[in-house]
Design a protein around this nucleic acid. Structure first.
Lengths: 336, 336
DNA sequence: CCGTATAATGCAACCGGTTGCATAAAAGGT
DNA sequence: ACCTTTTATGCAACCGGTTGCATTATACGG
């Protein structure tokens, strides 16, 4: 396949007149080897563009230096999380490579858990990174049972000792509400995602807290929870406008749902932001290209990726379970 | 790390009272082994939840059964390809796992080519998959020089023997033009991407061919080529309207540019689609959420992914260079 | 000047598979 | 019954690294 003549440490060893062990130690910068030798061996390796065979090293070390990024199949249905997934993946990939790890993308059947076995016991990967999704719980359980190292994006169910990284959801809800209040909105609605997602609850808490602090009531007619999808976003918005026709603002917990909501608001004859102000969540790249450009809550995704990677690696090394939450930021555009 | 007692084929061999070789052969279903033995060994492996160690197998076979999906860093700048990347990746990942391969996501510096060496010579991956991008040429050159197996999404430069999968760009251009003609448009413009991208030329060919067939002239004033970006899309649209103020439709070769173009058209006081009809390309998820929902050309992305994976694997095995193009489809919404 | 601590290197086993070749057992031919 | 095939299995080397332990060369203390 490749006719490069110098491929193994044995080759280098021969050229440098030393043993395999010495070359191996030079490459891992072991203190056992004398400086002079190190220099010489390194030079030879360099000249011959030598690169260690990763599989051999991994076999020897019994670790793969690879982690699996677990995603669900991308079905035809556009999932709300998609773009988010991509951006997070970029961050994780960066973080991982900074730690010297590779990232394998593993698509799994949401119903099965055999993949844990398959990838871990075969030595293919050292650990897993999961993003929040409706099937998360079952997977987390499986991972815990098999004592597989993993970390999740999102807020773990209360009482679970699971390493995680998430946005500061309470603060996100608060920022959105405060911005709407500051611009004089009086009847602010909440269009949420699935009820059982802890982050949605936290966003609501932050949101409701800010309203109460401002002396506003949190009218149940102006609150709804929907599955994560743009069609659900549209349906939810329609319901809200039916229940509370006089609402003058809405905080939507995802940008994709917010875009769908805006379409509904307009279809029903109201203007955004004049009649109804809209604040989204995530700051996906579509947010600034939409009509009108979307005011939204941005999570620091590159940071999230780096932390997911870093904390998982840390957990692998020390067993330290860390739960960190990262700051969010209000991005004001024209929809609110 | 894992206390599973039965982990190696040696363990299985002991339990089954056979040699390592036999177990190995049973697992690869070698015809050398008798049926009775196979059954027995398989049963034992099964009972003990045995899984082969991937690294050891790979070391022995000198192949990684892994391919690298090469992407550029996701910078803050919204890249035209983003969503596209994600969707294609899903398809590739599916195709690859059907072939028994894993997918590694490799982020590379567009300026460097060292990664080819790094991943190939170290045995980390068996091949690469690249998506079209402005830096593609340099990378392709590097890959070819190192005789690295790879496949690209998009149309290769003429005269290059490069395995590829691409959409049927000629047909895409044709469908767009025909749709606009059918709705009675008389002065149709073309807003293209970079001139040196073969796919852009092909889309133009299909577009121009359809116009000519309908007896329309292809007025140079109604044609422009811009870099790939939404700002360039806006600039291009502005130029077109300046050169040919009476145009009544425009075919834009990417959805993102089309969205920008629509903003310009409106800013200059015309309505979409009444005054100017707009057809985009790609059918990104934003297309249906935009105002008005965008009429566009959709490529069968899951199929693309599967073909990229399948053809690369085929190339790995046989050296067959295949260049396939997949069908496209017109999605009619409200912008045209 | 010798014994021992110390630094530098090599030997060989090991990680967990695969495979060419030798061998043993069963089958076939006459 | 005997020799040749054929079929089924084992032996041992190999893939390309890492590492515990032995060994040699050098430095140091007395």
């Amino acid at each position: 396949m490749n006719k490069k003549p110098v491929q193994t440490i044995a080759d280098i060893a021969r050229l440098a007149n030393v043993s395999k062990s010495t070359v191996s130690r030079v490459l891992s910068d072991s203190p056992l080897i004398g400086e002079a030798t190190k220099e010489r061996v390194r030079a030879i390796a360099e000249q011959n563009h030598f690169l260690v065979n990763v599989q051999a090293r991994q076999l020897s070390l019994k670790q793969s230096r690879t982690i699996a990024f677990v995603v669900h199949p991308f079905n035809n249905d556009f999932s709300i999380a998609d773009l988010f997934v991509l951006e997070v993946m970029g961050g994780i990939s960066n973080g991982l490579s900074a730690e010297g790890y590779d990232m394998l993308v593993v698509q799994v059947d949401p119903q099965e858990t055999g993949w844990v076995h398959q990838y871990l016991d075969s030595g293919r990967v050292d650990g897993f990174i999961l993003l929040t999704s409706s099937y998360r719980q079952r997977h987390i359980q499986a991972l815990q049972e098999m004592e597989a190292p993993f970390i999740v994006w999102g807020v773990p169910q209360p009482g679970q000792a699971v390493p995680s990284v998430s946005g500061d959801n309470v603060q996100g809800g608060k920022l959105a509400a405060e911005h709407l209040l500051k611009s004089g909105r009086k009847r602010i609605a909440f269009l949420g995602g699935p009820t059982d997602e802890p982050e949605i609850q936290l966003r609501f808490n932050g949101f409701a807290g800010a309203l109460q602090e401002a002396g506003q009531v949190v009218d149940p007619d102006r609150i709804t929870y929907e599955p994560y999808s743009s069609t659900a976003g549209a349906a939810g918005m329609e319901r809200l406008l039916g229940q509370a026709p006089n609402l003058d603002a809405v905080f939507v917990v995802s940008d994709m749902m917010a875009l769908a909501a805006i379409q509904v608001i307009r279809r029903l004859g109201r203007r955004v932001p004049e009649d109804v102000a809209v604040v989204g969540y995530d700051d996906l790249s579509v947010a600034e290209l939409s009509q009108p450009p979307l005011t939204t809550i941005r999570q620091n995704i590159p940071l999230a990726g780096r932390l997911l990677a870093g904390n998982l690696v840390e957990y692998l090394r020390t067993g330290q379970v860390a739960n960190v939450s990262i700051p969010v930021e209000l991005i004001v555009r024209q929809s609110a």
